[in-house]
């Protein structure tokens, strides 16, 4: 399911009269169980690429395959289902539903997936403890710090063991201890559950965990190398 193949992906944005390049003929293969970091300057197209892979945004041209599925050709409904069942998202900016508590936010995806209440609650609590939010289950996002919110989002993304986790700057709001802890958690999930990780980051500490580091600039891939961890 989770091997990803992108061919000649292009995406442009219009801003007034200006045409901005988001992705410029991207070719990319990511195998199941890889741990990939996307790096590159701001505006280089990392978020745009993650959104395209995750089926949030359709490319102007090119193909995205996930397993046997042509992600770029799915209708809205099946696309939503694919995201629900197979992908965990951590977004760059806005991650949590304000009217739900930390635990309810984590449970939300499982609830829509149709998991039983007891199982949901147990899993949500375990994962919140794992990301260091024990005792904060009943707080609403507004009562959590930026870093804590980020961790709730991470917990939600990984709680139901998706095939693929797409994380956009997951450590942006974290101190180095929490960031290290989080990356350790990602690494463990990657190694023991063969969950594929694609993480965009500016953070050198994060890149160290990557087995493969992709550098982007102006919507192009300018570097792609394997790393010893």
């Amino acid at each position: 399911m989770s091997s990803i193949r992108c061919r000649q992906l292009c995406k442009t944005f219009k801003q007034g009269d200006e045409i901005i390049t988001g992705l410029d003929h991207i070719d990319l293969d990511i195998d199941e169980g890889e741990f990939v970091c996307l790096s590159g300057p701001s505006g280089s197209g990392k978020t745009t690429l993650l959104n395209a892979i995750g089926g949030l945004d359709t490319p102007d041209s090119g193909e995205i395959h996930m397993g046997n599925i042509r992600v770029d050709q799915l209708e809205r409904g099946p696309l939503a289902d694919m995201r629900l069942r197979h992908i965990g998202f951590v977004f760059q900016a806005y991650n949590l539903i304000p009217v739900l508590t930390a635990q309810e936010n984590v449970e939300f995806v499982m609830e829509v997936q149709g998991l039983a209440a007891a199982e949901r609650a147990q899993k949500a609590r375990a994962i919140l403890e794992e990301v260091g939010l024990e005792g904060m289950e009943d707080r609403r996002p507004a009562q959590l710090s930026g870093g804590q919110q980020q961790r709730v989002a991470v917990a939600r993304a990984i709680v139901s063991h998706p095939d693929l986790v797409l994380a956009d700057e997951p450590t942006a709001n974290l101190d180095s201890v929490s960031a290290g802890h989080l990356m350790g958690l990602f690494q463990e999930l990657n190694q023991h559950h063969r969950i594929t990780f694609v993480i965009s980051t500016h953070d050198k500490r994060v890149m160290r965990y990557a087995k493969r580091l992709i550098k982007m600039q102006d919507g192009k891939i300018i570097g792609d190398e394997a790393q010893e961890s």
Partner: peptide, 9 residues
Amino acid sequence: LIQALGMRP
């Protein structure tokens, strides 16, 4: 966000 997480329209 809800849509992105996979809630159908």
